[in-house]
């Protein structure tokens, strides 16, 4: 029963998130609303961590696997990149990693400066 209740709570939040998405006319997916709703429920003790933790952690652990089917579905669509192949590859690899390094370096710089300020 424990796991049934846990998956029940997570699916209920997903269900409510889908309803919220219908009500708010913004290009934001239900999963993001759901994340925020579940977070608020935990924060305000509406949902206890124990009542979702194991199943939630299981879902997080298998998350990479869940991206395999949608990516395989792109096989027919790779053609669409042909007209911009060189800049696309450049952006996908170097653009992504440049963004990552910029964010990480900035965060680390700000964190260290903040720590020095606190001392």
């Amino acid at each position: 029963m424990k796991y049934l209740r846990q998956i029940g709570v997570i699916l209920l939040v997903s269900f409510i998130a889908e309803l919220v998405r219908l009500l708010i006319p913004a290009p934001i997916p239900a999963s993001i609303y759901g994340l925020i709703i579940l977070f608020l429920c935990l924060q305000f003790r509406i949902v206890k961590l124990e009542s979702i933790e194991e199943t939630g952690n299981f879902l997080l652990a298998i998350m990479p696997l869940l991206f395999v089917p949608p990516t395989v579905g792109l096989i027919d669509k790779w053609q669409s990149l042909r007209s911009i192949a060189a800049p696309a590859v450049l952006l996908i690899i170097f653009g992504t990693l440049a963004t990552m390094v910029a964010t990480g370096a900035a965060a680390q710089f700000f964190l260290r400066r903040q720590d020095r300020g606190n001392r």
Partner: peptide, 25 residues
């Protein structure tokens, strides 16, 4: 392939929702 595999995608929204757990902690 997707007839069976799409059941995995079905879990993507609940899995993203579960990101609230580490965020909360």
């Amino acid at each position: 392939y997707d007839e069976g595999a799409s059941h995995l995608n079905y879990l993507l929204t609940p899995a993203t929702v579960a990101l609230a757990i580490p965020l909360y902690k």
